[in-house]
Amino acid sequence: MQNSKTRTGETVVGPQTDFSALGTIDRSRPLGPQVYEIVRLGIIQDRLRPNDPINETELSAQLGVSRTPVREAYQQLIEDGLIESRSKAGTLVAPLDEARAREGTVIRRALEREVVAILAADPPDLRPLDSIIALQSVAVSHDDHLEFFTQDERFHAALADLAGLPTAWRLVHSVKGHTDRVRFMLSRDRHKRNNVAFNAHLALLDAIRDGDVELAKALITKHVNAALVAVPAPQ
């Protein structure tokens, strides 16, 4: 990435950082959360690397928003541990935090076990997931890890919605940023992993349809724990 300096010495993000390619702004919805998701996605997908600067003015200009929603997004990203504000250096992408990655996995696992237990105890109509499963299948066949990662997120969010826990999923979303960085690295670097994850989704749906609570909980535990293999255990 090429960076330059302003007359005041402020580091700005070079032209290779195209935030508009990560998402579009819908002005009928709150702007801050959308800016947050766009920058978060860039960090998760490693398009914004650790210690890369993120300039407020540049981001505002590219997305066509004022600095107010950008500052709102910055605050949430700082709380998530995905960016850091440093004196003189400005706002930078934070390095991968292994402790946060492990913590995010623990929290996500607890929620998802509850989600599948609720669903398997009283199996709902799972047809709303058919389109997501179809898109995952296409992504796997084309070895498209970017698309698979997107549809994987949609799949788990949809399960939480069906279980009546959409707010809980949004809370988990805010604490699993570093976990998602690990998950994305795995999906990008291990070509067979997406196929394994896809088959795990199919098996999980079968367990839910069959009303097998214990099997559903065991399957989701194994599935979520897969992200931990790339995170060193604490010393």
Results as ranks from 00 to 15, higher is better:
N3L: 13
T6S: 09
V13F: 03
P15R: 14
P15G: 01
Q16F: 09
A21D: 08
I25N: 06
I25S: 01
R27C: 01
R27M: 07
R29K: 15
P33Q: 01
E37Y: 08
E37L: 12
R40K: 13
I43M: 02
Q45T: 15
N51H: 14
D52K: 10
D52V: 13
V65S: 02
V70D: 04
V70S: 02
R71I: 12
Y74L: 11
Q76V: 15
Q76Y: 06
L77E: 06
D80L: 07
G81V: 14
G81D: 05
E84S: 06
R86E: 12
K88M: 07
T91R: 13
L92Q: 07
L92P: 04
V93Q: 03
E98L: 12
A101L: 03
G104C: 10
L111V: 13
E112I: 13
V116H: 10
A117E: 06
L119F: 05
P123Q: 05
P124G: 03
D125A: 06
R127W: 12
R127P: 08
L129I: 14
S131K: 15
S131Q: 14
A134W: 15
A139R: 14
V140F: 02
V140E: 02
H142T: 14
F148R: 08
T150G: 00
Q151Y: 11
Q151W: 11
D152P: 05
A157I: 12
L159H: 10
D161Q: 14
D161K: 15
D161A: 05
L162T: 10
A163V: 13
G164A: 07
T167G: 04
L171T: 05
H178D: 02
R181K: 14
V182L: 01
R183P: 00
L186D: 05
R188E: 04
D189V: 01
R190D: 01
K192W: 08
A200Q: 15
L202A: 03
L204S: 02
A207D: 01
G211R: 11
E214P: 01
L215I: 08
L219N: 08
T221A: 05
V224G: 00
N225K: 10
N225H: 09
V229Q: 05
A230P: 09
A230L: 13
V231G: 00
